[in-house]
């Protein structure tokens, strides 16, 4: 299954479409993209995660990193996370730090 990430830069936000498994072997690849994105200070980082079937704490750490670097004024938006990812976000309390939506832009 592996992992895939695709980046698109828009005027008001940057989008990463990620799919597959985000574990300790693939998180560094995701981390590199996130690092690049946050240095450009987007108003929002939008993650299209519908095709993401697995995320471990290695991936969660990247979400925390992204949110910390984005600061309080920019938002971290997750589009259509699978139920398992939602459950992991709930267990760790990270659900309160991200915006979950069914589509973006609305």
């Amino acid at each position: 299954m592996g992992f895939s990430v695709k980046k698109e830069i828009f005027e008001k936000y940057t989008a990463l479409t990620i799919g597959g498994s985000l574990d300790s072997s693939t998180a560094p690849q995701f981390g590199e993209e996130v690092k690049q994105v946050v240095t450009q200070n987007p108003q929002a980082l939008v993650l299209y995660v519908e095709e993401l079937s697995f995320m471990s704490s290695a991936g969660l750490r990247m979400l925390i990193f992204a949110k910390q670097k984005l600061g309080t004024t920019a938002s971290l938006i997750l589009v259509r996370p699978q139920e398992q990812l939602l459950e992991t976000l709930r267990m760790t309390g990270l659900i309160f730090s991200v915006n979950i939506v069914d589509q973006y832009p609305e």
Binding site: Q68, G71, F96
Partner: peptide, 8 residues
Amino acid sequence: LMKPVEDR
């Protein structure tokens, strides 16, 4: 776990 992510 309730801490805002900025403080974690």
